[in-house]
Design a protein around this nucleic acid. Structure first.
Lengths: 333, 333
DNA sequence: TTGAAAGCGCTAACAG
DNA sequence: CTGTTAGCGCTTTCAA
C-alpha cells in the first residue's frame, strides 16, 4: 500500500509557480510548453519525487497503458515463449502486462474479459477456446489480438503449423513410412485443425495414408491412451498434437517395450523445454512462439487509437521449422 | 478498447430514481440500504448491463484490487508453480494479477516496483534480487510479500531447503558417500545460502566433507562448467543448485563418458518438469512451490487494510521432500 | 435510510 | 505559451 500522501501534480504546480495543466503538459506534451518552463517544472517534479498516478490518467484519458494476456493453462510449457515475448514487448513500450489463466474454459475466458475490460486497452488471447462467433461479438466491444488462432477480420499472430505439418510428412515419407497416425488435441483447438489439414494434404501428395485419433488431453498424461490407440492401428509413424503428448507417448511405448524409432517413429509440435533430453530426443516442429506473443502485443498497440474505426484485419504468420532428433527413423520392415 | 459510452452509476441512478450514492451503497454496502431499494437498484443495474469502473473505484478509494508479482526470469520452470499458485489465489479473491519479469536485475526490480506502485495494492517478490536493506526501505512505502526469501520483519512464504538439504546429505551418506560438492547458484540467491548451510550442517553431523564451487548460472548451460569443476575435485556426489543446472551437469557427464550414478551421483532442487524423464531421472528436493505463491498472495491480502500499522512479520514455511530417482546410487569404489 | 456535494489525480478544451 | 475550468466514475462524509 502506498504511503499516506503522494505528491500530486498540484504540489508540483504550486512549488514551481505554474498551473497544474502546465505541469501536465510539461510531462506529456513537452513541445507545447516553453522550453525553460518545462525544464523548471521537470526539475521541481524530479526534486519532489513526483510519480504520476496511472489510475487518474487512465480514468481521465480512457487509456490505461495496460494489456492483458489470457492463456488457457500456465502449466503448459508451450505458452512460456509466447508469454515471455508478449511481456517483453509490452514492457518495452512501457505498457503494464496482466496475465490471466482461463483454465481451458471458454466461459472463463469470456468472464475474464468482461472483468478486465475497463482496466486494459486490449487483450491478447492465446489459443483462445472461444468460438469464431463469440470472438467477433467480443471484438465489437474490445480490442483483441489472437495468438495461434485465425479468425476472419481479427488481427492475429500465428506460428505456421500447416506448412510445417507437410514437412513432417515429407520427413516421414523419406524414411519410408507409408502411413501415419495423428493423435489429435482438443476439438476446439484451432492448431489441431491446421495440423491435421497439413498432414492430410502432405499425405495425399505423397500417396500416404493418414489417420486421425483422439482427441486426447494435450498433456503428458494423455500419452498413455494415445500410444495404445496408435499401436492398435499398426502405424509405423505417430504424430502427436504437441510435445507434451509426444513425451507421454514415448513413455508409454517404452513401458510396452516398443522401440522408438526402430518400431515406431514419433513426432511432436512446439519444441518445448525437455524435448531435447527426453529419450529418445524428440523430433518436433519448432516455431518462434515468443515472436508470436511479441507480434500480438504489437497488433494491439497499433489498434489502440482507432477503437471506432474498423481495424484492418492484420495477420502475422511466423515460419516454423522441423527439428529432427532421435525419435524418428526408417520405417519398420 | 471500450465502446463509445459505458453505463455509469449515474445512468443506473437516474433509471432507478435514486441518487448515485445510493447505487454505490447498494453495490458495496448492501446492509446500509433499504432492502427493497437495494433489490430494485440491483435489478436496474443488471438490466442496464452496468459494470463498475475499477479505475474510478481505485482512484477514489485507494484500493486497486490488484497485486503484482515480480519474477526474475520467466524462462525458469522453477517459477511456474509459484506463479500459478499466486495467480490462482488472486483470481479466487477477485484480485487482478499483474506479472512482470525483472530479468535477474535488482535495479530492474526496483524500477518495476516504482512503476507499478500506484496501480497495485501490493507486490509478491519471488526470489528477489534486492538486498535486505533495499527491501526494508521499499517495505516502508509498499506492501510486500516475499517468496523463497526471508528477511527480518517482512512477510514471506518459503519452501524449506535447509532441512531438505540435510535429507539430501543423509541420503548420500546412506549410499556410502564420504564427501559432496555443492554447485552453487547466484551469490545474491537466498536459497543458495540456505542450501549450502543445510548441506554443511548435515555433512558435519555425519562426518562428511562438503565443498562449494561456483557460482554457476542456474540454467542448463551452466552445467558444462559446473560438471567439469566438480570432476576435478574427484567428488563422488554432486548437489546442483537447481534441476536446470543438474540437467546440464547430467548432460556434460554423459558427454565425458562419466557414468551416473555409478561413478558420480547427482542431486538437484525443485523437481521441475523434465526432472523425471531426463536420463538418468533426477533425484531432487521437491516442494510445494504453488503453495508458496498462494501463501504470499494471502499475506499480501492480510496486510492490505493496515498500511500504517506495522504489519506483523508473518512467515510461512512449507515442507520439502526428497524424491529419489536414478541419478543417485552407491558411492564409487 | 437517502441525497447532495466534495473530491481522488489527471487531462483537455477553451480562453486569454 | 499558459491558466481556468470542467469533468472521467466512483466513494464518502455530512445533512436531512
Amino acid at each position: 500500500m502506498d504511503s499516506p500522501k503522494r505528491t500530486t501534480i498540484y504540489d508540483v504546480a504550486r512549488e514551481a509557480g505554474v498551473a497544474a495543466s502546465t505541469v501536465s503538459r510539461a510531462l506529456r506534451n513537452p513541445r507545447r510548453v516553453n522550453a525553460a518552463t518545462r525544464e523548471h517544472v521537470l526539475q521541481v517534479a524530479e526534486r519532489m519525487g513526483y510519480r504520476p498516478s496511472p489510475l487518474a490518467t487512465a480514468l481521465q484519458s480512457g487509456r490505461t497503458a495496460t494489456v492483458a494476456m489470457l492463456v488457457p493453462d500456465i502449466t503448459n510449457p508451450h505458452f512460456f515463449g509466447t508469454i515471455k515475448g508478449a511481456e517483453r514487448r509490452a514492457s518495452a513500450a512501457g505498457i503494464t502486462f496482466i496475465l490471466s489463466y482461463t483454465e481451458e474454459s471458454a466461459d472463463n475466458e469470456r468472464t475474464q474479459i468482461e472483468h478486465l475490460a475497463r482496466s486494459v486497452d486490449g487483450f491478447v488471447l492465446a489459443s483462445s477456446r472461444l468460438s469464431d462467433e463469440s470472438l467477433w461479438e467480443l471484438a465489437e466491444e474490445h480490442n483483441l489480438a489472437l495468438v495461434n488462432r485465425e479468425v476472419k477480420g481479427l488481427p492475429s499472430a500465428v506460428v505456421d503449423s500447416r506448412v510445417g505439418s507437410r514437412q513432417i510428412v515429407e520427413h516421414l515419407a523419406s524414411l519410408g513410412h507409408r502411413s501415419l497416425v495423428y493423435l489429435s488435441g482438443p476439438h476446439q483447438s484451432w492448431p489441431a485443425g491446421e495440423r491435421w489439414r497439413g498432414l492430410v494434404d502432405g499425405a495425399r501428395g505423397l500417396g500416404m495414408k493418414a489417420t486421425r485419433l483422439g482427441p486426447f488431453p494435450p498433456r503428458v498424461v494423455g500419452g498413455g491412451a494415445a500410444a495404445d490407440a496408435a499401436l492398435v492401428t499398426g502405424a509405423t509413424a505417430v504424430v502427436a498434437h504437441n510435445d507434451l503428448l509426444a513425451i507421454g507417448v514415448l513413455r508409454r511405448l517404452a513401458e510396452r517395450g516398443v522401440a522408438v524409432p526402430e518400431q515406431v517413429s514419433v513426432v511432436g509440435y512446439d519444441d518445448i523445454f525437455g524435448a531435447d533430453f527426453c529419450v529418445p530426443a524428440l523430433t518436433t516442429l519448432a516455431g518462434p512462439q515468443d515472436e508470436a506473443g511479441r507480434s500480438a502485443v504489437e497488433l494491439l498497440l497499433e489498434n489502440r487509437s482507432r477503437s471506432t474505426t474498423r481495424a484492418p484485419d492484420r495477420r502475422v504468420m511466423l515460419p516454423s521449422h522441423l527439428v529432427i532428433r532421435d525419435s524418428t527413423g526408417p520405417a519398420a520392415r
